[in-house]
Design a protein around this nucleic acid. Structure first.
Lengths: 224, 224
DNA sequence: CCGCATTGTTATGTCACCCTAAGAACCGTC
DNA sequence: GACGGTTCTTAGGGTGACATAACAATGCGG
């Protein structure tokens, strides 16, 4: 029953967890950029995290989470996504507002409260942006392997929106407007050259032009 | 549009606000005891609060809140009680659990979220313990003047429970068990001598023995 | 009016977390 | 294998909020 890490530590663990997704070893600068702090701050904190047993490999080539670190990171991620889902579903907050709020509340919601929230929502396994919600035991619902950014799909590709990047409220407002939300069917009709927009059929109905930076934040579970 | 004070500052303002209730000038030691910190810490913080314009009269005889201080204190109290109400009504948390949780969340709930919570609850004016919830404009719903601690009532007195002290979960569990909750009718049937229990009729039905320390935490709006 | 308890302050230290400035280690290029 | 650029760490500060220790001021009983 380890004590709950401080908000700062939780933020570092969460960032490292997210960065481990692509490639496995995480560098000081990656973390610094991701959290908006300076490299020396990260250097100090990583040393501390290593002493606390949350990360290892502190020497050269970046750090990795220990299993304990991963457990703690998943705890935070779970709370974040549960809170997001709750704010959206129960309180009717817009999906572009919930991330900010959850970013703070994730550090201050007790386990007891989280359990109640989860129960009142019927133990959801996806948050409003389509991200999987880890279980209390730290299991992450299967992330299908054939998920690619909409941006990378060739003309003619079809599939369903799996998740959307939740960090940019403006992006989310745009996506909501054009109907690019989780579970909707999409088909890439055309790719404009020179970094132009993608033309996409959304929900079998609307034709929508999606600019590159938007298309990079939408992930599609491929039909083919 | 003053920036939101830090959690620590909010806690001090809340404590001073509560202590101003009885008598008007609040001393260093009162605050220290109320917050469980040492006198020097309070001394420092009061100096800071005075510089920030939240309190005045810092010299001799204790401090008082400025109107700005009172406004900020009421903001915190409002959030605390809204959160309590929400946790109890919407999430079914027991009334003895909500205080602890709200004590933390009050510092981290945004104005936007508070507004949504208030709306989803229909802008309640009492929390689960019967305490009044200040409005967004900082107005405290009328606290009736003829409210006295159950402990102070003479034999034969009648009335309705107005509010219960929310700080001791054990007390609240006891009160819930014997039915002493806000709005229930009570009548003092007997006062045992030498600090013995009060015998009270609750809700026109049950006879209940209420020990002194419990009777001091229940406040009754007098019928006569 | 003096002594002494209560109350409050100043001085100083600690801890967590962040910063800037400056030096050390690594890395591909020539 | 020296060189310039990137990356990382060490050194040294700063802030907020707490602590302890020691001193000052108040206020009351005798």
């Amino acid at each position: 029953m380890a004590a709950r890490p401080s908000p700062a530590v939780q933020d570092y663990l969460k960032a490292i967890y997210r960065l481990e997704g692509d490639g496995d070893s995480v560098t000081t600068t990656q973390v610094a950029q991701s959290l908006g702090v300076t490299a020396p701050s990260v250097s100090n904190m990583l040393k501390k995290l290593e002493q606390l047993g949350y990360v290892e490999g502190g020497g050269r080539r970046g750090v990795r989470l220990t299993s304990e670190g991963r457990t703690s990171a998943l705890d935070v991620v779970r709370l974040h996504r549960l809170v997001e889902t709750f704010l959206a579903d129960t309180l009717g907050m817009r999906w572009d507002e919930v991330h900010r709020e959850a970013e703070i509340l994730e550090h201050h919601v007790s386990e007891a409260l989280a359990a109640r929230i989860a129960e009142s929502l019927g133990h959801p396994d996806r948050d409003p942006h389509g991200d999987p919600i880890p279980t209390e035991q730290g299991l992450v619902p299967d992330s299908p392997t054939s998920v690619s950014a909409l941006w990378t799909l060739p003309e003619g590709a079809t599939g369903r929106v799996s998740r959307c990047d939740d960090r940019d409220p403006e992006l989310l407002r745009f996506l909501a407007e054009v109907g690019l939300v989780p579970d909707v069917a999409v088909e890439v009709l055309a790719r404009a050259p020179f970094g132009g927009p993608l033309t996409v059929r959304v929900g079998g109905e609307r034709r929508v032009d999606v600019p590159p930076d938007a298309a990079r934040g939408v992930f599609v579970l491929g039909g083919r």
